[in-house]
């Protein structure tokens, strides 16, 4: 110590003592006092992963339901709801799988439940079955007509709008409001029962539209229709490449 003070100027010597003491103290605290889990990041990460993995599961997953509810599974597997997980509607059911008698999953019956998916919403993808929950059989629970495990229209629909509501509503405010769907589409009776396997026809050619919109159209529906010269009007294209027939966007 004395030597240190001789060798260095007084202030420097004192600082050296202080700094060395601080480093020693810090090192002692870090290496001896502080337990490893607090300072080892790999340990902390492994611990966090372990804790994360040990969190309780609430949704049992679709395979779990099959074990006991096979009969519903068989019914569901051919229907429109075949890709739906049971817990999408019945809620988390892990507790139910562990103690089936005591904990029962919910059975949603309220009329507000199904419209969460099936109420009409212009943002929903085209073709997704949608209804107007206010106008669609008010006050009746959905399940009184539809079986949620194999949903189908309860009776053969009479109107196209029963399924194609979006198109119907669009057409209703368009210039084509007067046209029946059958003017352009022929729907076989079978389409109403298995809509995906038997499809209605669609017009194939420019001439079909030309029957009303051609320069010399003679069809009785063509009376007030805007007329164009089929020879020069967009001859390269079929009409519905530019115009959407359910809501033709002609500016008047």
């Amino acid at each position: 110590m004395g030597k240190l003070f001789e060798k260095f100027p007084d202030p420097l010597a004192r600082l050296i003592v202080v700094v060395v003491a601080m480093i020693a103290l810090g090192a002692f605290a870090y290496f001896v006092l502080i337990p490893k889990p607090v300072k080892d990041i790999d340990f902390q990460w492994a611990d966090a992963v372990k804790r994360e993995k040990a969190r309780p599961v609430r949704y049992a997953g679709f395979q779990a339901c099959e074990e006991c509810h096979g009969e519903i599974q068989i019914k569901k597997v051919t229907g429109y709801h075949k890709d739906l997980s049971c817990e999408t509607c019945h809620g988390p059911a892990k507790a139910h799988t562990e103690d089936p008698d005591k904990v029962k999953p919910t059975i949603p019956t309220a009329r507000t439940f199904c419209p969460q998916c099936h109420a009409y919403n212009p943002s929903r993808p085209r073709g997704f079955p949608q209804i107007n929950p206010v106008a669609h059989n008010p006050l009746k629970p959905c399940t009184s007509c539809h079986n949620p495990h194999d949903p189908k229209p309860p009776t053969t629909p009479k109107e196209c709008s029963a399924c194609h509501g979006e198109i119907a509503r669009m057409k209703a405010v368009s210039h084509h409001v007067q046209l029946e769907c059958t003017v352009c589409h022929q729907a076989p009776q079978q389409h109403k029962i298995s809509p995906r396997s038997v499809k209605p026809t669609k017009p194939q050619t420019r001439e079909f539209c030309g029957k009303c919109h051609g320069k010399d159209a003679t069809d009785k529906l063509a009376k007030n229709a805007p007329k164009i010269d089929m020879g020069v009007h967009g001859e390269k294209y079929v009409c519905w490449q530019c115009h959407y027939p359910h809501s033709p966007e002609v500016e008047q």
Partner: peptide, 22 residues
């Protein structure tokens, strides 16, 4: 967390599990 506790058991994340339209 991608439902880390679920996927490490081979289950799907809860949101994927319940999505009705895939």
């Amino acid at each position: 967390t991608f439902c880390y506790h679920r996927i490490s058991q081979g289950k799907l994340p809860a949101c994927v599990e319940v999505c009705p339209t895939q």
